[in-house]
């Protein structure tokens, strides 16, 4: 896992640095391994991570963002401004830090909903109108993020 992290950092260095002679690439390799060596071991909050689910998750999230983006645009451009902002207490069965970060970030990225407070198992979400929160309430987000970290599906 740590070797993989060092390799990823090295790839990032290669992308960002414009030169590919031996000196610069060696510097990149040394810096990448130094960073991994100095940083604390592993990521204890992530139990397991499924790459297949991540590959499925990103296009789904993008489609979701586009859909709610058009919805919010219609709300804003409407002359009557038919918004009904309010807070929604969202209970979730996800509790580890990694899952909460991904869930909160996805909610904030989706226009129309913003995470305000985060606690294990509970999120405070501000929604622009009722339709924006509909999706969140149905629990699709939690399922998707849960699948990302291979949480066993509990029955509701």
């Amino acid at each position: 896992m740590r070797i993989f992290a060092a390799f990823a950092l090295f790839i990032l260095w290669l992308i960002l640095s414009a030169s590919y002679n031996l000196l610069h690439m060696a510097t990149g390799a040394v810096v990448a391994s130094m960073i991994v060596w100095l940083s604390p071991a592993g990521a204890p909050h992530v139990r397991r991570f499924s790459w297949l689910a991540a590959l499925m998750y990103v296009p789904w999230l993008i489609s979701r963002i586009l859909k709610s983006g058009f919805h919010v645009s219609r709300l804003i451009l409407d002359p009557a401004l038919p918004i009904a902002p309010g807070f929604v207490q969202h209970k979730t069965k996800l509790s580890s830090d990694g899952e909460l970060v991904v869930l909160g970030n996805s909610i904030t990225l989706t226009p129309g909903t913003i995470t305000v407070e985060v606690a294990p198992g509970e999120l405070l979400v501000h929604g622009l109108d009722a339709a924006s929160c509909e999706e969140l309430k149905s629990g699709v987000f939690d399922d998707r993020v849960g699948r990302l970290f291979s949480v066993k599906e509990d029955k509701k």
Partner: peptide
């Protein structure tokens, strides 16, 4: 989306709603 976000920044009533306009600008 940038234009709509700016219009939202002007029209929406409070900080929390304006953050939605900013999210529209950023993420789209």
């Amino acid at each position: 989306f940038l234009v709509v976000g700016s219009i939202g920044m002007l029209r929406l009533p409070d900080v929390f709603s304006r953050a939605h306009a900013l999210s529209l600008t950023d993420s789209l």
